[in-house]
């Protein structure tokens, strides 16, 4: 499995490079947290799943809901709504878990984040991305790469590496 992950990570890097080389278009998966729409790089998305009950882990922060067995791999699940203090989480059949992966260096990490719903796969010109303002969002802008307007909607682009790194750092704090 470790080998496979490493291969995936290499493929992602090569794919991203290729994308950036071939065109300036980047695909993002957009989802909704509360009333805002967020986006993550689709290449960081491993899988989209519907919500299933999780195995709870003791002595973790309140937004870490537990772990699930994803085809043999133990994946921690966090609820981004609680993580970002956006809204009271509701778990319905339409609740979706987006499984993300990071490729920071040789260390690959997989994590499921709970979102209200998945919107769309959007393709964005790199030039359309605007830098994140210093304020105005409920998410600390250290996770935000930038803002993009799609069909009159504002989509905040999250930096999955930072998001997952932060989780690691915070977990190390424990």
């Amino acid at each position: 499995m470790t080998e496979k992950n490493e291969i995936d990570a290499v493929e992602n890097e090569t794919g991203a490079k290729r994308n950036s080389d071939t065109s300036n278009i980047i695909q993002y998966l957009s989802f909704v947290l509360g009333k805002e729409e967020y986006g993550v790089d689709i290449l960081r998305v491993q899988e989209i799943r519907s919500w299933e009950p999780v195995s709870r882990v003791p002595n973790v922060p309140f937004y870490e809901k537990g772990v699930v067995n994803l085809r043999g791999a133990i994946v921690p699940i966090i609820d981004l709504r609680e993580r970002f203090s956006l809204s009271k989480p509701e778990y319905t059949p339409l609740t979706v878990v987006v499984v993300l992966q990071t490729g920071s260096g040789s260390h690959t990490r997989i994590m499921g984040v709970v979102v209200d719903s998945v919107s769309d796969v959007i393709s964005i010109e790199r030039t359309d991305i605007q830098s994140a303002p210093d304020f105005g969002t409920k998410v600390s802008n250290e996770f935000i790469n930038g803002l993009v307007s799609v069909n009159e909607r504002m989509v905040m682009l999250l930096d999955v590496d930072k998001l997952l790194l932060l989780e690691v750092l915070e977990q190390n704090d424990y």
Binding site: E11, N12, G15, R18, N19, T22, Q27, L29, I42, L43, V45, Q46, E47, I48, R49, S50, P93, L94, V96, V118, V121
Partner: peptide, 22 residues
Amino acid sequence: EIAFQTNLLALNASVEAARAGE
């Protein structure tokens, strides 16, 4: 529910497609 699952499957397919590149 089927529509939802289908949508999810399609999204996963889109993710896979994006990963596959050209």
